[in-house]
Simulated assay, not measured.
Amino acid sequence: MDHELRIDDRVLRYCLYGDPAGPPVVSLGGSPSTRWKRPDAVRTIEESGLCLLIPDRPGYGGSTRQPGRTVADVATDVQALADAHNWDRFALTGGSGGGPHALACAALLPARVTRCAVSGGITPPLVDGPEPGEDEADPRRNRTSWLAARGEEHIRPLFEEATRRIMSAVEAGGPEIPPDPHSPAPPAPPARDDADAMARLTATFVTSHDGWVDDNIAFATDWGFRLADVRVPTSVWFGSGDDRAQRYADLLAAELPHAELVPYAGGHIQPAPAYRNLLLWLQSGNR
C-alpha cells in the first residue's frame, strides 16, 4: 500500500511490505527504481518475516524533487521515516545506486542502524581527466559519472536514450527484467501484457528522469560522509556474473571497517535465493 510523509515542504512516497510487526528494515532502491516491487520480491519479503519500508527518493515516483541533494541527505529522510513508525533501531539495505544511500545512513545514524547490506553497490567515482572509454579497468572511471560531474544537461540525454532503448524492447514483447544468463530461469512473459509490470516500468523509466539525474550527480560529487565512518556490521553482495560489481565490492571492502564480502550465483539483479539470504542476514542482527 502506498503511503506518504511530509518533510518540511516536500512529500516522500513509500510502501511497506511484509509483516507489520516484524523486525524493521529500510530498503533503498537502485538508480533508477520504484517503491513498487515485483511479485517475486514481495513473496520473498513476506516469507522473511521482516517489515520492509521502501521509499522513492526525491525525484522518483511522486516524491518531491530535491535538486542539489547529496548522498548524505538521504539520512534525514530515513530518520524521519523511522520516527514516523516509531522505529528506534532498524536494519538497512541498498541495491546498486541505493548502496551509497544505505551506507550514508549507516555512517550518519550509527545509534539507530543495526546492520547494513549493500548489493551491487558502488564507491565514489573518479571524474577528473579526459572522458573515460569503454575499456577502463577501474570501474570508478566511467562515462556516466564523468558526464554527471559536468551537470544535468550532460547526463539527462544519456538517460533519455537509455529509456528509449529499454521501452522499445518492452514494446517489442520483452520481459520486465531482461533474462540473466548467469541465473537460468524460464522465459518471462511480455511485460506489455501485464498492467502492473508496465506501471513499474513507466514509474521507473518514463514518468520522470529527475531522480535518476539527481542520484548520479550526487554520486559524482562529495558524498557528505566517508566510507571509513561506517562502523556497523556491513555485508557487500555481488553476483558471480557481474564483473563490475565484483571490482566495486573489493574497493568497498578495502574502505569499510567491518565489511563482509558475499558472492552469489547470478548477475547484477539478485535472484530470489540470494535476496532471501540477504534478508536473513539482516534479520540475524535483531536476534
Rank of each mutant, 00 (worst) to 15 (best):
A80Q: 07
R112I: 01
P271W: 07
T64K: 06
T76M: 13
H3G: 03
P175V: 04
R69Y: 10
P100K: 06
S96V: 07
E134N: 10
G94I: 07
S168Q: 10
P100C: 12
R10Y: 01
L227F: 08
A104W: 03
A191S: 11
G120R: 08
L282M: 08
S183R: 12
A185H: 12
Q66D: 10
Q79M: 12
I269K: 01
W212S: 00
T163Y: 08
H85Q: 14
I217H: 00
V78N: 00
P32W: 11
R65I: 14
L81H: 02
L252R: 04
Y264E: 03
P24H: 12
E47Y: 01
E152C: 02
P32G: 10
P39H: 08
G151V: 12
C15P: 02
A253R: 08
C116D: 00
G18E: 08
M198D: 03
D40L: 10
E160N: 12
P184I: 04
E131N: 05
V170N: 02
R150I: 06
V113W: 00
G266A: 04
P124F: 11
V213Q: 08
P24T: 12
W281E: 13
L126T: 12
V71F: 03
G22C: 09
R276P: 02
R244L: 12
R231Y: 00
T44D: 09
G133M: 08
L282H: 05
F219H: 14
R65E: 15
R69C: 09
Q283I: 00
L103Y: 03
D250Y: 11
V206Q: 13
D40R: 14
R115N: 11
P186I: 10
E134A: 15
R65L: 14
A218F: 05
H209M: 07
A172P: 06
E171I: 00
V170A: 05
A172S: 13
L147W: 13
L280R: 14
L5K: 06
P263H: 01
D2F: 09
D8A: 15
A172N: 09
D73W: 10
I122R: 07
A117W: 03
R200T: 03
P125I: 05
A249I: 08
N142W: 02
V71Y: 01
M198G: 06
P187W: 06
L81N: 06
Y14Q: 03
A199P: 01
S208E: 07
A185T: 13
W146S: 06
L279N: 03
R247P: 02
D210P: 03
G224P: 00
D194R: 14
A84H: 12
D128F: 01
